[in-house]
Design a protein around this nucleic acid. Sequence first.
DNA 1: CCTAAACATGCGAATGAGTTGCAAAAGCAA
DNA 2: TTGCTTTTGCAACTCATTCGCATGTTTAGG
Lengths: 134, 134
Amino acid sequence: MSDLIQKCLDAGLSMTTARRAILRALENSEDHPDAFVLHDRAKAYDPTIAQATVYRTMRILEQEGLVEKHDFGNGRARYEEAEKAQHDHLINLSTGEIIEFQDPGLEALKIEIAKRLGFHLKDHRLELYGVPRK
Amino acid sequence: MSDLIQKCLDAGLSMTTARRAILRALENSEDHPDAFVLHDRAKAYDPTIAQATVYRTMRILEQEGLVEKHDFGNGRARYEEAEKAQHDHLINLSTGEIIEFQDPGLEALKIEIAKRLGFHLKDHRLELYGVPRK
DNA sequence: CCTAAACATGCGAATGAGTTGCAAAAGCAA
DNA sequence: TTGCTTTTGCAACTCATTCGCATGTTTAGG
């Protein structure tokens, strides 16, 4: 169940109270929390957690490839469990809401374009910004 | 010739020495300079320019839609004349080099996906990160 | 051109996200 | 448990970007 905790153990990370709390908070998040929101949520499991620990933990998880860090342009990084992140994002400019989507044709095209330019695709970022159609 | 200066005038912006210098520097840039590089280049036309003025000017130009602000993940915003920015970017992870590309099929697909989700596409951002194929 | 109001500038100080040094507190392996 | 390593909380720091303010430039109207 606690997939992330297991993955961290597998990666050889030591498991502390603070870390467990943050991992749980992240796992239970269906959205894309920033470091402050994540801190708040983690406090539910361990009220003594410091903001700095959230940043430190997120950095480690990102390096381990367990977390993806996004920047949707409001000056704060937002995080998402890597496993849940097999999609791109559309940002509703009217509300700030973030919609996830996936398109196989698009994925293939990204790889194809990189190849055409002589590169092997390692990573990519696609964000669409739109307003609702009436 | 000085397209940007004319566009600024058309937009009703007042034209100062500092602004002209920054606009020229930007116009002569074929790459994606950050605020510091742009500051350096603008000093060639007006050595008294302050960094803050570069930031202020870029913000105004962005609001007017004359400039695009990019974030390629190194913590510094990078700017590009909007007119020259009809393309996406591939970042060479080995060298940091930025390659511009354009793909009509991709453009169409972005619009199509937004439409399918019920949105009218206002803006988008696509970055591919890759390593050279041997 | 000249003038006044409007706007932009340079400077240094402030902001705010993210990082870091350090001493104290866990975690971990034996 | 012991001793060693890693992590934590805190506060102080960094660094890109923004802001306040007093001064200098632009611009529109005569």
